[in-house]
C-alpha cells in the first residue's frame, strides 16, 4: 500500500477578521443584495442578519435537518452552507411557502395530522417534505420514512409527519 507524505498539516493561521463580500440572493421571491463575511452560514444569515427565524438551528452540523431550506427548489442543510456560496441562488424558507393567507398543502397537512409537538423541527420537516415532493422519488410509505429521515423530531411526531407527507403527495404535483 502506498504511503507518501502528501500535504502539509495545517498550522496556526494569523488572527484577524475576514472581509465582507457582496452577494445577491433571492429569498422567498425578494432579491436581496447583501454584504456578508465568508464564515457566515446561510442559516445564521437568515436567523441573525435577516430576522428570518423560521429556519431553525438544531445542531449546526448537518445532523438534524432543522435548518432545511430549499435552494433552487432542492432541500439542503443551511447550517453547512456558506451564504457566499449561494450567490445568485433562489432560497425558499418556511416563511416563503404560503401564498398570503393560503397555507402550502404541506403546512395544512402538518396541522391536520398533528405532525409536530414543540414545533422546533417543523419548519425543517416542512421544507424537507416540499423538497421530497419536488424530487419525486417517494413511492411508498417506507420511501417517505426513509427520505424524511434526515429530519430528526425529538418529540417523536414521525407517525403524523408520514401521514401528512402522504396526504400532501396526493395533493401536490412534483415541481409545483
Amino acid at each position: 500500500m502506498s504511503s507518501k507524505v502528501l500535504t502539509e498539516p495545517i498550522g496556526d493561521v494569523a488572527v484577524g477578521l475576514p472581509p465582507l463580500q457582496r452577494v445577491t440572493l433571492t429569498i422567498n421571491g425578494a432579491e436581496k443584495q447583501l454584504e456578508v463575511a465568508p464564515w457566515t452560514s446561510l442559516l445564521d444569515l437568515l436567523r441573525e442578519y435577516l430576522d428570518l427565524t423560521g429556519t431553525k438551528k438544531g445542531c449546526d452540523h448537518g445532523q438534524c435537518g432543522a435548518c432545511t431550506v430549499l435552494v433552487d427548489g432542492k432541500r439542503i442543510n443551511s447550517c453547512l452552507t456558506l451564504a457566499v456560496m449561494k450567490d445568485g441562488c433562489e432560497i425558499t424558507t418556511v416563511e416563503g411557502l404560503s401564498k398570503g393567507d393560503q397555507l402550502h398543502p404541506v403546512q395544512e397537512a402538518f396541522i391536520e395530522h398533528d405532525a409536530f409537538q414543540c414545533g422546533y423541527c417543523t419548519p425543517g420537516q416542512i421544507c424537507s417534505a416540499v423538497g421530497l415532493i419536488n424530487e419525486g422519488h417517494a413511492k411508498t410509505t417506507d420511501d417517505i420514512r426513509e427520505l424524511m429521515s434526515g429530519n430528526i423530531c425529538r418529540c417523536g411526531a414521525y407517525p403524523g409527519i408520514v401521514a401528512a407527507v402522504e396526504q400532501a403527495l396526493k395533493v401536490c404535483q412534483p415541481n409545483q
Binding site: T68, I76, G131, L132, E135, S149, G150
Partner: peptide, 9 residues
C-alpha cells in the same frame, strides 16, 4: 448514506 438533504449538497 447520510440524508436526502446532505446527498443534494
Amino acid at each position: 448514506g447520510a440524508s436526502a438533504q446532505l446527498r443534494n449538497m
